[in-house]
Design a binder for these strands. Structure first.
Lengths: 320, 320
DNA sequence: AGGTATCCACAACCATTCGTTGTTCACTAC
DNA sequence: GTAGTGAACAACGAATGGTTGTGGATACCT
């Protein structure tokens, strides 16, 4: 199917005749006729009834019209997403179920008129490089990795401290607990697959292990979130950490927000102290994108300062 | 922009190299190279970094990828909407703000997995013809026009009795009333532009006028809903009828559901008796579309029988 | 009723695009 | 260094898509 044919179809439907559409599109009437005929051939239905006074939509054409408009709208957005200069605000998040993604959803709800592109880069170095080059406008990260000061021009604002929770199956020894302390977790097996060495997450959990004597295994291949949840649910002696605002499953688009299979998983708050992910927004000081200022204002307005007493972050984290 | 190029882009992004993508698409590697180059030229950005081990997405490519997928998805739906056989359930409603549209929204919420196409045909004759030919699957109408029995094979189910309300401006004499009787309306000017002679609505209001001695004007050009509301709001002596479930304005897509300009309009219930629009679902007895049965079941389950005492419908309306 | 204007379809022709084959270039691994 | 892999460039043939020219059907006007 040809997008130009679809555009021609919409124009004919709007003008009511091939000739006016041809004038609008700066082509000849015969070209319009050919395009519509080709579209009708590929779809296998007649889209217009040709009358001596012009062309009228058939029922099939009426059903097709909103889809055609949507197609053109999506195509325009797709082009805009890549256009250099005046493109949508491009923000990197850690993963699609994390707190950064949730904050961006909130921003989109508050400012639906602002075009967004949310993407997931591999690590903080890539994000910083992308911010410096202007390829992306901002990034949600837990900064900064120890010994790696931010390059000149990159600024960061701590926007959300997300408490960690223990995620365990129904047969786990702590399944009935209303909360657990970090000290209680010593001796329990905690599994965090997918922690890639060299990323900021390694540094975070290294510090957590060193300070509270936990046993955290990062071994084994990471088969993705689903497999992790399955294993946690089925293994009584296994636990993992998950951010309080992190969804264990991707919300299904359009479907009622039920978790397809929650396996009876339990979320147990961690206390004394509560380890938190210090989410920060990274951006370039000189980035002129107007929506970036809106995003920063939105974040400072909605994520009011949390109480930091009783929480833990690595020592190298920049204070608020 | 060419959809085939977009499809090629997604395939390369998925396979990670031009050659595999070429094999998947049954074309040569050179053709893939050309298509990607052309797409990059039209977008003005580089989408892949060409490595000796294959192709990797650039940041721009990563931002473009979800849009590309969405574009292909929409294109597929667009084609499906017109495909003869196994197309989405196609339902005709009277207008986009009426009760039929609302019922279809409810059905979509309850069954998001069912593909729908909602369209608006001109009148009941056209709807019946379309149902007979199989061009549409069902239609929400106030049936049947007097003296026009339904053709063989067409069935109707009365699904909703929608009470009429009086819509008036803030300066109207009845603006303060909590409700009005039909008898009270005698002598007031009621304006119903856009009632096309020969449609079922003419018959409905003709009967209403004859039975209760009202003055209903259908004169003047119909400049659309906005103009009607403006006039009603500004003219103290003018009123119009509107269904209880009818939205005076189109809900804005994505925006908070505020009415852009409500002009201080008042809705006054009508009593003694309450005239109602008898909405029915029309469909062909032999229509095999599986979603049609689902729709009928949904409607009978959700629109439980309303109390008919104190309501009025024309005598020619088929009883429930 | 016949002429005329309007509007779309068909035919022929031409330019451009698109896909193919053949080949070259860059990089990696052994 | 040599073999192997993966993408780009060049040249050619086919097919697509645009144009001009023309014909046919219908409605309106005199």
């Amino acid at each position: 199917m040809d997008l130009e044919a679809v555009r021609t179809f919409v124009t004919v439907a709007e003008t009511g005749q091939f000739q006016k559409a041809a004038a609008d599109l700066s082509i000849t009437q015969q070209a319009v006729s050919k395009r519509i005929a080709a579209l009708e051939r590929t779809l296998g239905v007649r889209l217009f009834t040709r009358a001596p006074r012009g062309a009228e939509l058939t029922i099939d054409g009426q059903a097709f019209l909103p889809h055609a408009r949507e197609l053109l709208r999506v195509a325009e957005r797709a082009v805009a997403s890549a256009r250099p200069g005046r493109r949508p605000l491009r923000v990197d998040v850690i993963n699609s179920r994390g707190a950064g993604s949730g904050l961006m959803r909130g921003f989109h709800t508050a400012h639906p008129e602002i075009d967004l592109d949310v993407l997931m880069l591999f690590d903080i170095q890539g994000a910083v490089t992308a911010i410096r080059s202007g390829a992306i406008d901002a990034s949600f990260r837990a900064v900064a990795a120890p010994g790696r000061p931010l390059p000149e021009g990159i600024e960061s604002v701590r926007v959300l401290d997300e408490p960690l929770q223990l995620l365990i199956g129904p047969a786990h020894a702590l399944a009935g607990a209303r909360s657990v302390t970090l000290a209680q977790l010593a001796g329990h097996r905690i599994w965090m697959p997918g922690i890639v060495p060299g990323t900021e997450w390694t540094a975070y959990y290294d510090d957590l292990v060193a300070e509270f004597g936990l046993t955290i295994e990062a071994t084994g291949p990471n088969f993705g979130s689903d497999a992790l949840l399955d294993t946690i649910a089925d293994t009584p002696a296994l636990a993992t950490f998950m951010g309080e605002h992190t969804l264990p499953q991707l919300p299904l688009g359009g479907a009622p927000s039920v978790w397809p299979a929650d396996h009876g998983l339990r979320r147990i708050p961690v206390t004394d102290p509560t380890p938190v992910y210090p989410h920060s927004l990274l951006y370039h000081r000189d980035n002129p994108h107007p929506a970036l200022a809106t995003l920063r204002a939105h974040l400072t307005a909605t994520t009011t300062g949390h109480d930091a007493t009783g929480t833990w972050v690595p020592g190298w984290v920049i204070p608020r």
